[in-house]
């Protein structure tokens, strides 16, 4: 193999390697969250007054918090809430956004109304809209999911509407219509199959944003109640000890970074694989 070809091969491998790294990290985080009771060395709520704010050690790898609880165990359990909320947000916003996007893209009459509402919602910063929604709905895990799903639905709607507008002009959709296939069937089968890959890519990115946003809301005290361990609530309750015990803040944050980063790496890899044309847009 000549050097030029070898370099190209290495470049591609490097790219895939990052994606691979993301996928492995994501898998580890997800498995750890699911199998938390098997993996976590301690109970996430087990308080030990004598062990308050202990630095990382052989017994407590990530140290202990202000109640003597093991930080690592809380991070592992916290992943359940953080990732669970993120996943629920993704599913809900995908469902709502895809429906609205298909309707907007296919029915001219609905397009203006839906897209105006999407514009209006996107004129507000995500976190502001989310905090407003949680404020009116009430702070609970379920309402955080609902609020974030509402916040991210417009993004999905835009992507799906855009793809639908392109796909509906393609000859095979026209042909299906001429063959007398009913409109709902055209929508669901033909268009949905064709817009599936941009939606899937969007899903991974929304997952990442949702994990970050949930942490932000919880940090502000406008999210999940503080007694539920999530990565956000851990940082929120730990921040007043940050000067004495940086680990109570540092490690939960690192978990958020790793989760969001691995999700984005996987999303990027998916985009490469599913649609090479989008590659340069990163």
């Amino acid at each position: 193999m000549d050097p030029a070809a070898a370099k190209l091969f290495l470049d591609r491998l490097f790219r895939r390697k990052l994606v691979l790294f993301g996928a492995v990290v994501l898998l580890v985080i997800v498995i750890a969250a699911i199998a938390a009771p098997l993996i976590a060395p301690y109970s996430p709520t087990g308080m030990r007054v004598t062990q308050r704010l202990r630095p990382p050690s052989a017994t407590n790898w990530f140290g202990t918090d202000e109640f003597g609880r093991d930080v690592l165990s809380r991070i592992i359990y916290g992943g359940r809430a953080s990732l669970g909320i993120g996943m629920a947000v993704v599913l809900a916003s995908m469902l709502a956004g895809t429906t609205l996007g298909l309707l907007a893209g296919y029915f001219r009459a609905l397009d203006t109304v839906i897209m105006r509402i999407v514009d209006a919602m996107m004129s507000l910063p995500d976190i502001l809209l989310a905090i407003f929604l949680v404020a009116v709905l009430g702070a609970s895990a379920g309402n955080v999911v609902l609020a974030l799903a509402i916040v991210y639905t417009p993004r999905v709607t835009r992507v799906v509407r855009g793809s639908t507008l392109v796909v509906r002009e393609l000859p095979f959709v026209e042909a299906a219509r001429l063959l007398g296939v009913s409109t709902p069937r055209i929508l669901t089968v033909h268009i949905l199959l064709n817009v599936a890959s941009p939606i899937l890519v969007q899903a991974t990115f929304i997952f990442a944003y949702a994990v970050l946003a949930e942490a932000g809301l919880s940090f502000l005290g406008a999210g999940v109640p503080p007694d539920v361990p999530t990565w956000g609530t851990m940082i929120a309750s730990g921040q007043q000890y940050a000067d004495r015990a940086f680990w109570v803040v540092f490690f939960p944050g690192l978990a958020i970074v790793l989760a969001a980063l691995s999700l984005q790496l996987v999303g990027d890899g998916l985009r490469d694989m599913l649609d090479p044309k989008l590659r340069k847009a990163l």
Partner: peptide, 20 residues
């Protein structure tokens, strides 16, 4: 890669680290 990393950092966490 750095851009993706920057987009993965919660601002409040980075703020706390910077303050420290």
């Amino acid at each position: 890669g750095s851009a993706m990393l920057a987009a993965s950092i919660p601002s409040f966490w980075l703020g706390l680290l910077f303050i420290q």
